[in-house]
């Protein structure tokens, strides 16, 4: 049995990264607040599909999710983004997120998929409850993570 696919060390600064999952992909965002961690996790989600730096923030859309459990709210948020990516045929790179008492309100910015320029690698099917956590460390750094199905 291999011990692969285990999450690496906890993040020490705001940002995003992917973590290992044998069949799918883990997304992780870190920030000084749950809202910032969620925004970073959203960048990690886009990075599964393409280079976020290649996505111009031309068009703004509003996203709203209401869910008192912060972990379930993360899944709702990522699924709302997946839904917008699929139905608007868009990719997103800027996420301004506010979370207040289980109410998430966000403005997301991006542009229509251009296959030649974005070179999208894979579409995301849905965010899962696997390896799902929203936590913070002693320094107040929040980390939001889960596995997404691709």
């Amino acid at each position: 049995m291999s011990a692969s696919d285990l999450p690496e060390q906890a993040p020490s600064a705001p940002g995003w990264r992917h973590f290992e999952h044998r069949a799918d992909m883990g997304v992780e965002g870190a920030g000084r607040s749950p809202a910032e961690a969620f925004a970073q996790a959203a960048v990690a989600l886009t990075a599964i599909v393409c280079d976020p730096a290649a996505v111009q923030p031309r068009v703004a859309l509003d996203v709203a999710c209401d869910e008192p459990d912060l972990e379930l709210l993360l899944v709702d948020w990522l699924n709302a983004l997946i839904y917008r990516m699929a139905t608007e045929r868009m990719l997103f790179s800027r996420f301004d997120v506010r979370i207040d008492d289980g109410r998430l309100r966000a403005t997301i910015r991006g542009e229509s998929v251009e296959r030649e320029r974005h070179r999208p690698a894979v579409e995301v099917k849905g965010a899962t409850y696997t390896a799902l956590s929203v936590t913070h460390d002693a320094s107040g750094l929040w980390t939001a993570r889960c596995v997404v199905d691709v």
Binding site: I82, T87, K125, A127, D149
Partner: peptide, 17 residues
């Protein structure tokens, strides 16, 4: 395709809750 993915997403949450 997207329909199945969304059914999975919708009911996973409803069943978990």
């Amino acid at each position: 395709r997207g329909l199945g993915h969304q059914i999975g997403t919708d009911y996973l949450k409803r069943m978990a809750v």
